[in-house]
Simulated assay, not measured.
Amino acid sequence: MNHTSATNVGVVGCGLMGAGIAEVAARSGHDVVVVESDEARATAGRDRLEASLQRAEAKGKIPSAADVLARIRVVTVMEELADRDLVVEAIVEDEAAKTALFRQLDAIVTSPDAILASNTSSIPIMKLAVVTSRPTHVLGIHFFNPVPVLKLVEIVPSLLTDRETVARSRTFVEGLGKEPIDCQDRAGFVVNALLIPFILSAIRMFESGFATAEDIDRGLVLGAAHPQGPLALADLIGLDTTKAVAESLYEEFKEQLYAPPPLLARMVEAGLLGRKTGRGFYTYDK
């Protein structure tokens, strides 16, 4: 791998985040292979990418959606990642699933110089690094949703990540037109460690009957210039993801402010996950 840029990029997972990461990499000229777990998900991922790129072309953000799509292959076979210089994992926010995947990537990706990155929003990078034979080349590269729009990327080395891996990752991220910030390997990193307790306190305020969801959100939008309120934001993130990040933070710090409120747990159990299911703190047209 030339150390100025990663040419061959791999992405595992073609959901919202994975598709977004694949899109920005391909838009920046990288050759991208995306792996999904089965053909149905691969097809859904391809459709998602195509729709997003066609929107970008219609808005004049890219000259040709077809040219970008030509640089992306969505496959169902992990072995297709063997020749990649950098692989970003963007699967479900579950520690057991991610560690299993990093073991697999370590065995498949042939170049000893290749970087194995996780897009996790809350799982400590060290837990993923130590299951590989190359912990110096493992780190977090955490994008924000929607990936094509939001500029921020958190770069999270573990205690074992070497400096060159960090420098190469930063170059890659900047090459995508993104702005990296450096974070330490603590659950939640910078953004979620601040954002999740804020969202949870809004949920507790609503749960206690202190104020309506609309008034809580309107208060933050009009009184603190937030682009959207915390409950609408939780619906956008997904209440299942919000709860998973909260649990990861609570596990790490044992601070009460990170504990998911009972209402959040009940809503997740009921399948009321926010925008993606049509109902959370608000109701959406599916």
Rank of each mutant, 00 (worst) to 15 (best):
R41M: 15
T110C: 06
E50Y: 08
E39R: 10
S5N: 11
E23K: 06
A193I: 02
V32T: 09
T212M: 04
I141T: 08
L236D: 05
L231D: 05
I196K: 01
V32A: 00
L160V: 15
P63N: 05
P135F: 07
E207T: 00
D83K: 15
M205N: 08
K286A: 13
A25L: 03
G45Q: 02
A51R: 14
A44F: 15
V77T: 13
A117L: 05
A97N: 04
Q54K: 13
A25N: 07
E207H: 09
L160N: 13
E89Y: 15
K98Q: 14
G219I: 14
G29Y: 06
N192V: 04
G15L: 01
G60C: 10
H30N: 14
Q184R: 05
K178Y: 02
R84D: 11
P180T: 04
E23N: 15
I108F: 03
D31F: 04
T7L: 12
F172N: 11
V149W: 07
R71K: 00
G15V: 02
V153G: 01
G223T: 10
R73H: 14
H226T: 07
P146F: 11
K286Y: 15
P157Q: 08
R218A: 12
V190S: 03
Q228S: 02
A202T: 06
E247T: 04
T132H: 01
K127S: 13
A6F: 14
V87I: 09
F210M: 14
L86H: 08
T165G: 08
Y282H: 12
I125W: 07
Q54G: 09
A265V: 15
D85I: 10
I123V: 09
S208N: 15
P157W: 13
A56E: 14
M126V: 06
A187C: 01
A259R: 13
S248P: 11
A56P: 02
N119S: 03
S122R: 06
E247C: 00
L194N: 08
P230V: 15
L249W: 10
Q228M: 12
I21R: 03
Q228H: 15
E80H: 11
V24Q: 14
V156W: 05
A66L: 12
L176C: 00
A234G: 02
V75R: 12
R204H: 10
R134E: 01
G271A: 09
V109A: 05
Y282W: 06
M1Y: 04
T110K: 11
A90M: 07
I199T: 06
L81C: 00
V131G: 01
N119C: 04
M1H: 07
G140M: 00
P146V: 02
K286L: 12
V77P: 11
D67I: 03
S111W: 04
E95L: 13
L233Q: 04
T120N: 03
S169G: 07
D113Q: 00
L53Q: 13
S158I: 00
I181A: 10
V245L: 00
A193Q: 06
E207F: 12
Y282Q: 02
V24Y: 10
E207N: 06
D182S: 03
G229Y: 10
G223Q: 11
